[in-house]
Amino acid sequence: MQTIASISSWYANNETLIQEILIYALLAFSIQVALRSGIFSLAGVGFYAIGSYAAGLLVKEQAWPTALAVIAAVLLCALLGWALSVLLVRLRDLYLALATVAFDLMVGVVALNWSSLTGGPLGTVGIPISVTTLTIFITVLGAAAMLALMQRGTIGRTLVAVREDEQLARSLSVNVRRYRELAFVISSMLGALAGAYHALLFTDIQATDAGFELIVLALTMVVIGGFGSWTGALLGAILLTWIPIELTSIGQWWDAVYGAMMIVVATFIPGGLISLVTIAGRASRGRARPSLLRRGSAAAAPPASSSGA
């Protein structure tokens, strides 16, 4: 009885933290699914903004049922995401990254100026709280399951080939464009989900919510956690939501410690922190391989489907 009581009191004390982690996990998934497919897109953050306005306004102004509003927001972003992926089809790497950052920030500028819809600088406030932590948790589980399917078997290998060597992929029947579009659209939908839930849980939206800071945070989560797998994105979301809170206790230099940790992980752990977990797991099964010390980036992505179907 006492354990149950202590668990529930721990939960009560940390509910906001858990909610934030879940929402950030969806956003991190959004970036991860793109990066893993070789698409350096940060558009998920822009769709986070669009999704939050769409769901928030539909519930608040049109009194739509929550589920319907969320679905509408996600479908809208799927469509916009597909359109964006078609527009940006020629871009790769840092150029694609900058184009999508520009898209994200442009969404913010439009939101700030479209006062009649978004409330402009005042933001959209007073959205009724209409989702529960449990709903979000189930959504995260569902999204994780879909992403897990996407990184194994035929599609898992195909997306790795698309990421590592597009020309080779084409020579093996892969319609690179279609596979990239799928990853882009899934990324948009996950971003929209994160935004929609944020709006419906924390009741207000500011045009500056999805700014450069959020882009940086989402990217950092994915790279620190490890972009090779959804588990890395989840780990990144947990750590980067939780660590800053822990670090505040060490005083005014916590940000610097946080920055130093980012440099160390980005420089010396190419597969992200999740690769340490994988290596530890292998070591405990007695077949440790020093992936970290190997030159190159073999540790970046786990073997796509070594466990079979």
Binding site: L35, G38, F40, D93, L94, A97, R163, E164, V216, L219, T220, V223, I224, F227, D255, A256, Y258, G259, A260, M261, M262, I263, V265, A266, T267, P270, R295, G296, S297, A300
Partner: peptide
């Protein structure tokens, strides 16, 4: 020097530079 994959190197440099900016 350590990352064989150019795209991943770009990504890691981006994040490392964010860390530097924060410090």
């Amino acid at each position: 020097t350590r990352f064989a994959n150019k795209r991943q190197a770009e990504l890691s440099m981006l994040v490392a530079s964010i860390g530097g900016a924060i410090i």
